[in-house]
Design a protein around this nucleic acid. Structure first.
Lengths: 165, 165
DNA sequence: CTGTTTCTGCAACTCAGTTGCATGGCGGCG
DNA sequence: CGCCGCCATGCAACTGAGTTGCAGAAACAG
């Protein structure tokens, strides 16, 4: 079933399976997301695209929106006001968690949560989905290793738990 | 200590207690946040300010950043790329939760979580804080009542769990 | 290969949030 | 109680993610 004949084979199959049009932009973006070990921003995707294809940034936005509508990817919102996209791992992820590195900004998906959390809601409020984000340091940015964290993409000073100044 | 002589008394005291300057803008914004039953956006704060004071939008941004640095408020990031601010309820809220209404966009703070959630992280990843957001409908927007949800501030099509089209 | 439908590229726009700079006011000190 | 330094404010211009409108291009059914 999963015969990987070309790097973009999987992506193409997934897109074709939706019954909608298979276009270069869709295949490119999806296969890039499938190959990524973490969630990617629009910017990262745009920069990583094959330049010879001349794919416009607006097209990338539209492809991402389309992929999300098709449930082939999912969109992760973060405190830096930038959306990141990940090839959808599971079907209905009612409560799956994300990890965000406060140093380099990397975002990854975590597996299903073990505990059932049920914070008490005020009367009349009805919960639908729950989103959990763990913040901390990724393996690259943790102190024990080399010392200097990588790339550090300015987090727009979104300190929340950390003391800032 | 907490003598509430004027509507802005509390706010003024809290600001004075930081040892830094007490200005009209800071008092106005903080007392507005203290009085609000939910988290407010920059826009809502700006619109709600006393027009006769002629407080600039940039000042509001700076005041909010300052208040957050002083731990008098805390900043909540949401999927609509707009930050909301809430007068800080507890000191170090390592894991407190938020609720966001998917219809009107209202955001409120929830109390401490009961369960200890510890999703497994990959090797080398160190967690610091956890953020939990419950999405659903607030009491105003829940079906049982009147029928028509209130204000409905366009959520920039941020469907994530919900099927969209 | 032709027609229809949908995507794409381009350009211009929106909107939250930021930055630089000159002015103004808070509050410490005399 | 008035002066002065430093911090906060107003103003204007900017940034950068994401959106919209429209005309031309490409996908796919027939």
């Amino acid at each position: 079933m999963t015969d990987r004949r070309s790097p973009h084979g999987d992506a193409e199959d997934l897109i074709r399976a939706t019954g909608e049009r298979v276009t270069a932009a869709r295949v490119q973006v999806l296969s890039m997301l499938l190959a990524a070990p973490r969630a990617l921003t629009h910017r990262e995707i745009e920069d990583g695209l094959d330049r010879t294809l001349r794919i416009d940034r607006v097209t990338v936005y539209r492809v991402l929106k389309w992929l999300t509508r098709q449930h082939l990817t999912h969109k992760i919102s973060s405190d830096d006001r930038i959306w990141r996209y990940n090839a959808a791992p599971s079907e209905h992820d009612t409560h799956h968690a994300h990890f965000k590195c406060t140093a380099c900004g990397e975002v990854i998906c975590l597996q299903e949560l073990s505990a059932e959390i049920r914070p008490r809601l005020p009367d009349g409020y009805s919960p639908e989905i729950m989103e959990v984000t763990i913040k901390g340091l990724c393996s690259e940015c943790s102190p024990p290793s080399s010392g200097t964290p990588r790339t550090v993409r300015a987090t727009t000073d979104s300190g929340k738990g950390t003391h800032e100044r």
